[in-house]
Amino acid sequence: MVRYILKRLIIMIPIIVGITLIVFAILNYTPGDAATLILGFDATEASLDALRAKLKLDDPFMVRYVRYLVGLLKGDLGISWRHNTPVAAELMNRIPNTLGLAAYAVTVMLILGIPMGIISAVRQYSLLDHTTLFIALLMTSIPTFWLALMMMLKFSLELGILPATMPTSAAITWKHWVLPTFMCSANLTASTVRTTRSNMLEVIRSDYIRTAKSKGAGQFRVIMYHALRNALMPVVTIVGINFNVLMGGAVITEQVFNISGVGNLLISSVRTKDAPMAMGCIIFIATVIGIVNLLVDLLYVFINPRLKSMYVRNNAAKEES
């Protein structure tokens, strides 16, 4: 198992390197001269050249890319072109907010989505089932930024019970997280409900559930112990995919709610062509996605021990050969 995790971690390295190459190339070959963007359009040619020399912008693309990679290996993400501060420090300030929001959203999604999916499946075609499905359909269809603004209008402006955006001077309280969390999780919860429900329905109808019921196990035990565990597999995938969607979606959420996060930083650095900062943000997002995918795969094994035996057998076979 440890070998498997290590292998997966090692595979992540070329993936991340590949991503850095693509992003570095995009930032490099899209029009717009970095020195001019930093110094402004009326900067003299001499000062532009001086800056290009300082940032070593005149070197060939591959030279600069390899230099960047070497720096990256040493843990050096470089200095932001626009703000003249270390990229790593700016990122560290914002990572807790981005990861925090994603964690809150996933928690809400699990707490609400799975039980609602189960209840919907068990009480198929009931009023509750229809209501849940209808809301779930609505939440998957509504664009989140629009939903966010509507929520702000309702809960912040009209009812005045929740703050609309993150404060700039006062401390951030749990209230500030309610709307962003809701907005992030609305879509995810809906898809979790739908997946849980359809898988539960399938499992409930299978023979072994009938067997469990006929041997006299209670309804609750049958559902929670026998059925849920098998119905959960695809749900775990959904959680993993959604976490990744959350990372990308942070760009919108953070902008709307004025959250000091990686997504917000990414937008502003792309807009100003602050290449080191944009690279830092993307490397962070790519790494998180890689790790979450790994965790999801490990969770499979935990939920379904059959998979574990598969890995072990594979490894054993390799060692023999």
């Binding site: 703050p163 609309a164 955006t165 404060p167």
Partner: peptide, 17 residues
């Protein structure tokens, strides 16, 4: 306070944030 989203900024203005 730098606000990239104008809609949200106007709501924040209305709520007094």
């Amino acid at each position: 306070s730098i606000r990239l989203d104008t809609d949200a900024a106007v709501i924040a203005l209305q709520t007094g944030e």
